[in-house]
């Protein structure tokens, strides 16, 4: 499972970096979205990867990380998702404004056009 998750994060992150370096604003925003997925999965993975272990204390079960998964990264991911979503949405607005004002979707505006 670790290998699979690592692969997923790697593929998402690699694709994100490639897209962010592209010259079109739409590709950049897709890259930023993919990057935030990769980062969120990465945060999730630093807790612990277990099946069938709840992140909340239950009566009768010893309270150690052998029986629970760490709830902290999950709450961090939740916050990071919300913030990432909001800032990406804001970036989308700026992207559209830039497209409207400059008349091109090149990241550097008209002077960046070949």
């Amino acid at each position: 499972m670790e290998a699979l998750l690592a692969l997923v994060i790697g593929v998402l992150g690699g694709a994100a970096v490639w897209l962010v370096l592209r010259p079109r604003t739409f590709q950049v925003i897709m890259g930023l979205a993919l990057l935030s997925y990769a980062v969120n999965l990465f945060i999730f993975s630093v807790g612990s990867l277990f099946l069938d272990r709840p992140p909340i204390v239950r009566p009768g079960v010893p309270t150690d990380l052998g029986h629970y998964t760490d709830p902290m990264p999950q709450s961090l991911v939740l916050t990071a998702i919300v913030i990432g979503f909001a800032t990406t949405a804001l970036f989308l607005v700026v992207l559209l404004a830039s497209r409207g004002l400059a008349g091109t979707d090149h990241v550097d505006g008209p002077r960046g056009e070949p």
Partner: peptide
Amino acid sequence: ASGLHYIAVNLLASSLFLVGLA
């Protein structure tokens, strides 16, 4: 135009922030 760059760079920096923090 400059805001687009400013936001993109800072979004990338925020991702790095999260990776380091995690």
